[in-house]
Amino acid sequence: MGSSAVSDCSPFFRINSPHCLGQSGVITVNDNRPVNLDMTTIKLPLPALVSILTRASGVFLFVAMAVLIYALDASLASEESFNALKLELASPLYKLVIWVIVAALIYHAASGIKHLFGDAGVGETLEGGILGAKIVVAVAAILIVVAGIWIW
């Protein structure tokens, strides 16, 4: 039981149990273990980069949804606002904004589908993880370019 408690308190997992704080006295020896989760000093392998970009794109999409819902509002409110939006979306700046949002959606979706494969037990080895990350990058890159061509 002691050894499992140690692994529960690993700095790589979220600390949920009181014993991890050393209050109960279960773990005192390991409290001073060095922790290095400084992203600037860790060289991220491709699967880690794919993973953290999923989070970054997710946070970006949370903000971008305001733009999409605003556009949906303008597109359905009246014929005047629909035509005004259509005119705005034709300008290079708005095209770029839409392309960036679509790119984030494509990347986040590709990585999300990889997660579903992972849930089904596909690609759980080290080699499988690296291959999966490469597939996500390749598929997302192709679709993002295709979306860019369609938008312009």
Binding site: R55, G58, V59, L61, F62, M65
Partner: peptide, 12 residues
């Protein structure tokens, strides 16, 4: 979806 994702990111 956003709530769960943002909660995970913030608590990390």
């Amino acid at each position: 979806h956003a709530w769960i994702g943002l909660w995970c990111t913030l608590t990390d």
